[in-house]
Nucleic acid binder design. Structure first.
Lengths: 353, 353
DNA sequence: AAAAAACATTTGATCGATCAAATAAAATCA
DNA sequence: TGATTTTATTTGATCGATCAAATGTTTTTT
């Protein structure tokens, strides 16, 4: 296999100069139409492909974004990040961007990695996931003037409309609000909620979606609402325990909403009356079991992240021009309703004869 | 922020030439100890980081491996590939290799992507997953002399010991054999198996592990064995149906092994007698539910892939020197035994009072 | 002690592309 | 028509590192 042709080879074949070839690829507008066609023909004929590293060396940009691959802490919910990663890779590809992975063992280690990739001109910017209040990574990136966008709003100090950095997030409030409404429209009055303990920005956001929808409708009193809510850490076993408690405290239960699919799966297990359970994240498990779930629309999140990273702010807030362009994207999740009966709960009493 | 220092800056600071700095980084052995230390001190002091693209342009290698991110077809089992991806990224990092992602919509499209990344000198080689018999990708890569290793042995035509390409795989036979032995050692005699229909190299491999272990022990006859086996497509619902059938045909059942965690989860649902069920892949779901499962040791697979990719064959078989070095790695999975009782199967009859 | 060999370091060229500035060609104006 | 602007294309320099070969040092050999 002969070595790859270069711009010079193409230029020679098309009877033009190197730079014209370069222009055809980068600013086709300034090249006369007939010249352009001639060059494009030569490119096609020789099978020319630009050498990515050479271009990066000269332009000082890599057309690559870095993202940390999390060590699946919670395996079930972790799949949201995987889906996001897939969507991001796919859409980045369409814009000529590449996605480079890295791993880290701690936020501090992650900063070391960020620095390494940035200094080595390996990436133009980063996408941060699983951010938390007082995250040292965002602080470091801002201080060093590096482009980045987070998947997850800055919980805590910042005003949402004047953030220190660009972000995209999913509106958990709207998701739970919609799920509650859907249950109510289906005739449910007493709708329970299994959520996470404080402090959890995400958890509180989702919880309020349920709470607000319940109070708006006015089917239950505030006091009653307290009995319809159980708080526990995330996990299947925890969900089962929470469901058992809910059935004890709540009295009648027409439906149950959960802050995650893990909890929902757990709740399902202690659910002999087949009370409709709705989860969050629309993970494969929910699909397999036939649980309704709130889907995070990772495609829209990925699109938003790329827009902010390559758009007007190009990944920065500091030093960016005055602009009315919003500095974040709030993505509305969508409720996926499933037929609950999909899971044949076989029990001793009715075991196959 | 001042622009990054270059080799020349370091050379100036250390009072040596560019090349010596380069040598300190790439062949430290040929630099005298005291010079080396002086250079290293300058590197540390200036915070020098080599410019990855410049290096790649000159050396004509990218220190990057490409891997396609699959569009999670089967969400549950898909997590094995995610874990593999994580392990690969982590270990590649330690060797100074980066992992670049890409997506594709079909094997043909994937070939286009492979070509693009290879021609653009973006990657040195590829890791292929989810290979199948007659895979056009392996054919294309071999024809074009591009480095690659597959996760998955070449099912079908090739002799395992004289393959056309390098591969790493997990020994499904050994996994099921061990799982069967473990059940037998626990006193089980009649051990059922829920597997996949032919033709499936992987499925047949696992099935034989169970079959061989059963016959070796001689607790059941060949005829009996046929009654202990059910075949169905992968999926939770399918697993449930298969379990119901197994309970009908098998008579007594001391344990059930499944070809996947999806099937195992399904089997669990139709399992009022709490017959021990073992899955395959050790997915988060298995962990959450408390199922025993065969773990694919993705760390070892990742290590094997990198060894083959960077080792003696450097990702090629064709044109490689005669060598006794094995051209594949067969990784032994390990059985993860879990307490079955972890899942509180609440049923109407014994619902909380 | 001079010659040869081994080791250590430096210099100039190069990888493939794009930038910035210079030149050539075409279009517009006086 | 000749001067001026606009548009199209080319040339030389450069990004930051490593290669190949040359030069300078030290060690070994005879």
């Amino acid at each position: 296999m002969a070595s790859m042709p270069t711009v010079t080879d193409v230029a020679l074949a098309a009877g033009v100069s190197r730079q014209t070839v370069s222009n055809v690829m980068n600013s086709p507008g300034i090249v006369r139409a007939d010249t352009r066609e001639r060059v494009q023909a030569a490119i096609a004929q020789l099978g020319y492909r630009p050498h990515a590293s050479a271009r990066r060396l000269r332009t000082r940009r890599s057309s690559t974004i870095g993202i940390r691959l999390d060590p699946m802490i919670d395996g079930i919910s972790g799949s949201v990040l995987d889906r996001f990663l897939h969507a991001l890779t796919e859409q980045a590809d369409k814009q000529g961007l590449r996605v480079l992975l890295f791993t880290a063992t701690s936020p501090e280690d992650e900063i070391t990695q960020l620095q390494r990739l940035n200094d080595g001109a390996d990436v133009d910017g980063f996408v941060l996931t699983s951010t938390f209040a007082g995250d040292p990574r965002t602080k470091w990136l801002i201080e060093n003037g590096i482009s980045f966008v987070t998947f997850g709003r800055p919980w805590g100090t910042n005003d949402m409309n004047d953030p220190q950095h660009l972000w995209v997030d999913v509106d958990g409030w709207a998701g739970l609000h919609e799920a509650t409404r859907a249950a109510q429209d289906g005739g449910a009055r007493r709708i329970g909620y299994i959520g996470w303990p404080s402090p959890s920005g995400t958890g509180e956001d989702r919880r309020r979606g349920w709470r607000d929808a319940m109070l708006e409708r006015g089917d239950v009193t505030e006091d009653d609402l307290a009995l319809l809510e159980v708080v526990c850490e995330d996990g299947v076993a925890q969900g089962t325990a929470a469901m058992q408690e809910l059935r004890r405290t709540a009295g009648t239960l027409d439906a149950v909403l959960c802050a995650s699919d893990s909890l929902a799966l757990g709740a399902m297990i202690a659910n002999p009356e087949r009370v409709p359970v709705t989860g969050y994240d629309n993970t494969p498990v929910a699909a397999a079991i036939g649980l309704s779930s709130v889907d995070q629309s990772v495609d829209e999140v990925a699109a938003g992240v790329l827009e902010l990273l390559t758009g007007e702010f190009s990944g920065h807030v500091q030093g960016a021009p005055e602009s009315d362009e919003p500095r974040h994207r709030m993505v509305k999740p969508r409720l996926v309703v499933r037929e609950f009966a999909a899971i044949p709960m076989d029990v001793p009493g009715r075991a196959t004869a």
